[in-house]
Design a protein around this nucleic acid. Sequence first.
DNA 1: GCCATCATGACAGTGAGTGCCAAAAACTGT
DNA 2: ACAGTTTTTGGCACTCACTGTCATGATGGC
Lengths: 219, 219
Amino acid sequence: MDITVEQPGSRDAERADGSRPSGRPPLTERRKAETRLAIAHEAVRLFAEHGVAATSGEDIARAAGISPRTLWRYFPSKEECVRPLLSAGLESAARRLRELPAGRPLREGLQAGVPSAAERADVSSALLRLIRLLPDEPGLRAVWLRVHHDAERVFTEVIAARTGADPDGLVPRLKAVMLNGALRVAAEEWARRSAEADQAAGDEAFRRAVLQATESLDI
Amino acid sequence: MDITVEQPGSRDAERADGSRPSGRPPLTERRKAETRLAIAHEAVRLFAEHGVAATSGEDIARAAGISPRTLWRYFPSKEECVRPLLSAGLESAARRLRELPAGRPLREGLQAGVPSAAERADVSSALLRLIRLLPDEPGLRAVWLRVHHDAERVFTEVIAARTGADPDGLVPRLKAVMLNGALRVAAEEWARRSAEADQAAGDEAFRRAVLQATESLDI
DNA sequence: GCCATCATGACAGTGAGTGCCAAAAACTGT
DNA sequence: ACAGTTTTTGGCACTCACTGTCATGATGGC
């Protein structure tokens, strides 16, 4: 379910079966998730305004209203602060694919587009700004690549389950990685076209890329 | 030709037309390339023996017989020290694709396998050890991903030139990224099988992955 | 309201990475 | 071979990303 790697601050996320460890209050959990997202938004804003290099961890912490020590407990590096925004679309895509009725081609679960996948408008607009930062910011690009890399495992499992193939086999992994790369390009294209033209053009570009990829992969 | 990003220490690599800036002596150039590779080998050895976290930049510099300050001029981070090994195979693959006669399918330029692409036995064996470190070392995995990301541009151009498509268009980029991901999986599979079984098995796995990918991409 | 648990913050420390300048080495021409 | 120039290297001091540890405060269970 959860694509992001375990953060030191979220010691007890939900288990695979949905139960919570002892009696962990969802209130605290929710507040922590909000803090995570607030940090991400502030980080993107500062990165966009001054660049990554000129933004210190202390700056981000101050903007988010927490101490630097707490910031490092939420994220292992300042670049990683933007991860919640970058991974939102992929998590949503993975969820859709899992819930897709058997027999339907995977592309049906992927053509919803980025903005509807992000679900919240502020997330979507922050994501747009963020993706436009990627070409000039190698550190953020690295996070973008890592986020997608983390998603490969999930896609592999989904594809294997759907085609009845061995999840550790070569073909499902190959298709998953290729699909994943296509989703990355599609998202980048979405951001480019959304900024150049309008949102509809961005969505259209996303859909076209997904279709092209899923057809050639036959999924 | 050169996939690796420009390093601060190599201020004047060869130009695209093959000429050198003023009268830059190839002797110095060659010595620097040797130093780069020597650093890479020592870094892999130390990373494999003690782990990345327990290996300091000073350790690598001492093993390579240079000062720490010089090490940071050759590479921007200790993880990046392994880049020359990781990028060797991709550079070789890109070269093969460029030199492939027009009309031939791209897969013919890719099926040579990793070891022959690395050309030197010590590079190939170091690469094998290195790829086996990737699952446990997030920092090195990030370099692996970045190296492949850097190769995407080259593959895009090759594919666009071969199919007569617009190099800035969606389809060439899509195919390049997907092919690139497949090459990454193929190399990982090569390393796994080479260690589990023997070199022939590794080569076979590599070839199978490349064939599968190029066929579905129709290149 | 009391207790256990856990998130937060303050402080000090490590080490990666950089700017700056001086020394050394390599290349140029004569 | 030698002088002059350019380039590479090394030493030093510095910044800052990030961590271990402990004290403190907030939260939830009872």
